[in-house]
Design a protein around this nucleic acid. Structure first.
Lengths: 193, 193
DNA sequence: CATAACCAACTAACTGTTCATTTGCTTGCC
DNA sequence: GGCAAGCAAATGAACAGTTAGTTGGTTATG
């Protein structure tokens, strides 16, 4: 007879997962420096000391959160170098459906800039994407360099996301469909429809 | 005979300015939660108590930093609704020359999202820009909504900035000229050259 | 002298991290 | 089946270092 979220019996995997979920919310909301270990433990209904047995320390916990999110994103939004507008649209959808994603990525950029520690598989993924773009058949000359094109597509897809520096405060989800269409059209013009 | 940065005599304006400059570096580097009041005082060669007499508290100091930077940006990069590629290029230049700008803006987005307190003149400026775009003569139908166009231009101009979530680690300034040209060309395609 | 600028020292609260101890599950044995 | 040993999981309380903010006095300036 389950009475609350905490599992009836001892279950390290479930506890780990609960900590990770709570940490995701906390880090997405407050960043690394602003996150509080106490709050994470309380939200996960677990003792905060478990954070140190499972993840080493606060930074290790953040890394674990980042790795999980990057992996999931790369997994669920496959890159399609021959259909960049479609890719931008799907990335837009994903970011809209997972508001933590871009906030976490931005915190990571700001707070972990110098440390060298990058989320697992991210730089590999960027390299693969760039190479795929370089080899993709693109007819017209005077086209963008692969690096520029990739960065532009990512920037456009995330331009309307609430974590972006440019989105005005009163952003409403009902208008998302219109913005999505605009993003797709913008990328279409970039690649020369 | 000046021996260090601190003015020979008492000079409240200079002290205020020194505090503001030190706070800019500290906040740009570590954000609000990560910034340390002691470090700011030390870097400004002023007593940290002066922060509280001049700016109220840590948050007030951050607001002052943000206001100054937003004002300067809006002042030095005039908006030209009829020449969006040129505007994007000039904005790109400004962000490249003032690396603190986008970092501060991003910190503000992340840490001050809900508080309502926006940098002075920013939302006004966004509204004016949107209206200017709406009234600007653009021939072709099927064009972007003014809000979309503005957000896209800003996103593209800041896409290659080190504070962006998408820029790979090994970004070198020598390649900036090429990226600048790509940004201008991208905006040109958006508006339909 | 009167006022404003400035400073050193202080404080109360908080934070990440550790650790000795307890709790409950599993396993081998009778 | 019943039992006790062994062990990982979980806990509560504390530690040692930091932090934003304050205060009372000192010093230059007009």
């Amino acid at each position: 007879m389950p009475d609350d979220e905490r599992g009836r019996t001892r279950d390290p995997d479930a506890t780990r997962a609960r900590l990770l979920r709570a940490a995701t919310d906390e880090f997405a909301a407050h960043g690394i420096a602003g996150a509080r270990v106490d709050r994470i433990g309380a939200a996960a209904k677990a003792n905060k000391a478990l954070i140190y047995t499972y993840f080493g320390n606060k930074d290790g916990l953040f890394d674990a959160v980042m790795d999980a999110h990057v992996t999931r994103l790369l997994d669920e939004v496959p890159f399609t170098p021959d259909d960049l507008p479609g890719y931008a649209g799907r990335l837009f959808d994903y970011l809209l459906g997972h508001p933590h994603q871009l906030r976490l990525a931005t915190w990571h950029r700001l707070e972990r800039a110098g440390t060298g520690r990058a989320p697992e598989g991210l730089s590999d993924s960027m390299r693969r994407k760039t190479e795929a773009l370089a080899q993709a058949a693109r007819p017209r000359s005077g086209d963008f360099a692969p690096e520029d094109l990739l960065v532009f597509v990512l920037a456009l897809a995330s331009a309307w996301t609430p974590a972006s520096p440019h989105v005005p405060p009163g952003f409403r989800a009902e208008e998302a469909a219109g913005h999505r269409a605009a993003v797709v059209e913008a990328v279409r013009r970039l690649v020369g429809a």
